[in-house]
Design a protein around this nucleic acid. Structure first.
Lengths: 228, 228
DNA sequence: GCGTTCGTCATCGTATACGATTTCGGATAC
DNA sequence: GTATCCGAAATCGTATACGATGACGAACGC
């Protein structure tokens, strides 16, 4: 008897396989996803692959054009900005909704990650830095009391996945500031600050990264977002 | 030559067909979606139907169990609460991001809708009331400067679609209060109030509906959400 | 030389077919 | 009477097959 929860359907296999490739940058934005090739690669027929791609399409990771095919979504600058703004909103709230559930150990782990980030600052590697950044924030919002919001945050992270590396490489100065804000957030959580305060600061933290990026890359079209 | 934008693929036909049935309550939560039957109904094979259902699954409108089949998502009370909370967050922000783009005419239309709601209060029809409620809010956030956030709001509305009728029927008293708050929001928009203020009030407006529901149905587990 | 047209190839879209899994009812044992 | 086991029917999962569509390049006309 096979364990259904462990034995994945081929559609799911394909789904995860593709998703991972996108996340790991093996499939970069614009990359053409050919059904037949992927099917061959995974040793299955095209049908499960099609379904997998549909799901990825619904998540916004791939674009699909009828009778033409699928390709990894191009996240142009404007789309990037919009997603980041949405993420600042969602993540801020998720962090607040998670704060009360965080243990001392969670905070300790987060602080540890943040210290790693400080060390990384010297021989700065945007990619490593961003990975740590995600890890840090993931610890803070992972215990979000609202699972739906957690889903939304994670979906938005995935959407931005393929270019989240670049954020800090554009605006190197932002990284140092970022780790300082991280410590601020940790202190607020430790002190049981009002949830509204935690939400506000978390949201600003991410908006600030976005603003830094916008000012650096598109100083003309900085569109203010309400930071409360 | 066929117009590709008009000529829908069968998957898309199936997708819209099913989605509409769900929205119109013809397929109620728990309803079993049998691939073969739907395919027969639409005069197509099961393959496009499968894809359609995958998409709906990704949107959260249907649940899917391997080797068992799909059914319209049960939105139990807790899931309902979580989605509403997410919606209050998203909609509040979307409304704020839309406020500056609203014309006098938009506000006028919204006010008109709200006045209809007032009239409806007398011979109260939860279903009609909720439809108007959605229309009202749609006017307010439809010009959201951030299209991504608009997508998220609409997706969340769709998720709650099948039971949004019930909200006000549970807590009749809430409806009257709700229309008063609507007018408040309109005034804020007209006066060019700070976006933060608009966001705060919009968010509270929806949270209040949720709170009223929770207190009425589950007085034991009212879980506070940060209203700023 | 340049633009247009036509044909071919790659790829997608869907139907059909069949094996695999689950569900459910009835028969059997206790 | 109840619990358990077995088997058939319903339904899903995937492979294969073939027609349809669009992309690309070569040949042709100008």
């Amino acid at each position: 008897m096979k364990d259904v929860t462990t034995t994945k359907s081929k559609s799911q296999q394909a789904y995860q396989w593709i998703k991972q490739r996108i996340a790991s940058q093996e499939f970069t934005p614009g990359y053409r996803l050919v059904l037949g090739s992927i099917a061959g690669e995974l040793d299955m027929s095209v049908v499960p692959v099609r379904e997998a791609i549909r799901q990825l399409e619904a998540e916004g990771l791939v674009m699909f054009e009828r009778n033409v095919g699928a390709r990894v979504s191009m996240v142009d600058d404007t789309a990037y900005r919009f997603s980041m703004q949405a993420l600042s909103l969602l993540e801020g709230a998720a962090t607040a909704l998670s704060a009360r559930a965080l243990t001392h150990d969670d905070v300790r782990r987060a602080r540890q990650v943040n210290e790693l980030m400080v060390e990384t600052l010297e021989h700065f590697d945007p990619r490593a830095f961003t990975a740590l950044n995600q890890e840090f924030h993931a610890i803070l919002f992972e215990k979000c009391a609202n699972p739906r919001m957690l889903e939304l945050v994670q979906a938005e992270w995935a959407r931005l996945g393929h270019l989240r590396d670049s954020t800090f490489s554009f605006v190197p100065g932002r990284a140092a500031e970022s780790v300082r804000e991280h410590e601020n957030i940790l202190v607020l959580i430790e002190n049981g600050a009002p949830l509204a305060e935690i939400e506000k600061v978390s949201r600003r933290h991410r908006s600030a990264t976005l603003d830094a990026y916008m000012i650096h890359e598109h100083p003309d079209q900085v569109l203010g977002l309400p930071a409360f």
